[in-house]
């Protein structure tokens, strides 16, 4: 289980996370919702060690991640697809995926699995990442993260700015991953897309975690969405 207990973090003197606690079990899809600036992306960065904690702890099956150097987090099979994809723009798709494979020394079987999930990438393997369309870039970014063969996958706004067919593909991939035992922590703006694939929804407000509810309850009762997201 990936578990955050009372984490706090700041960018310099600006505190962005005050007290965030949540957990993701293997095979579970947890979506983090909140208004802009609530601390969703900062929570993702904190898990990856890219934002140092000032309080609290982050564990994977009891092993603390927050005390490890950033480059050790991937060894614990926690993978990250950041907001805006952040592929290595001057590397080819193949090289971007190789970086993922190298993180844990995974072999070509993992690559085959990734290409099965995103067949389009096979046609784009030798193309520079910055020349891909937005949807292809997102496939490559998720594919790169999957190349570490993760147990927990962090997806920060994976459908941002994408056409409906690609959004549907990403939803399908997330569902497939959760069925195969991968825990997914998802930050997403498209509420309806979230509710169809998430098991739980965690609300964050001003750097504090608030309520965690089953996604199914939000389909009938939208009061929490109005309260924390304003929709």
């Amino acid at each position: 289980m990936l578990e955050l207990s009372g984490i706090a973090a700041a960018y310099g003197r600006v505190k962005v996370l005050h007290d965030v606690s949540l957990s993701v079990c293997e095979g579970e899809v947890v979506c983090v919702l909140g208004r802009n600036g609530a601390g969703k992306t900062s929570t993702m960065k904190a898990i990856m060690g890219l934002l140092p904690l000032s309080a609290g702890q982050i564990t994977v099956d009891g092993t603390r991640l927050d005390t490890l150097p950033v480059d050790h987090v991937a060894k614990h099979r926690v993978a990250y697809t950041p907001q805006g994809r952040r592929l290595f723009p001057e590397l080819t798709v193949r090289e971007n995926l190789e970086i993922g494979l190298m993180a844990r020394g995974e072999d070509s079987r993992v690559l085959d699995w990734v290409l099965e999930l995103f067949p389009r990438l096979e046609e784009r393997m030798n193309q520079l990442a910055h020349t891909l369309s937005g949807g292809e870039q997102q496939m490559a970014a998720i594919g790169r993260a999957l190349c570490i063969n993760p147990r927990f996958l962090l997806l920060d706004e994976p459908t941002e700015g994408l056409q409906p067919s690609i959004v549907a593909l990403i939803q399908e991939v997330v569902s497939t991953l959760s069925k195969s035992g991968v825990g997914v922590l998802l930050v997403e703006q498209r509420i309806d897309a979230v509710l169809s694939i998430a098991d739980k929804v965690a609300f964050i407000e001003n750097g504090y975690s608030r309520e965690v509810v089953p996604a199914a309850t939000l389909k009938t009762d939208r009061s929490l969405l109005e309260k924390y997201v304003g929709v």
């Binding site: 060690g49 950033v70 480059d71 990250y80 290595f88 970086i99």
Partner: peptide, 8 residues
Amino acid sequence: DIAQAFGI
């Protein structure tokens, strides 16, 4: 940052 997130 992303390189570090991938174990580099």
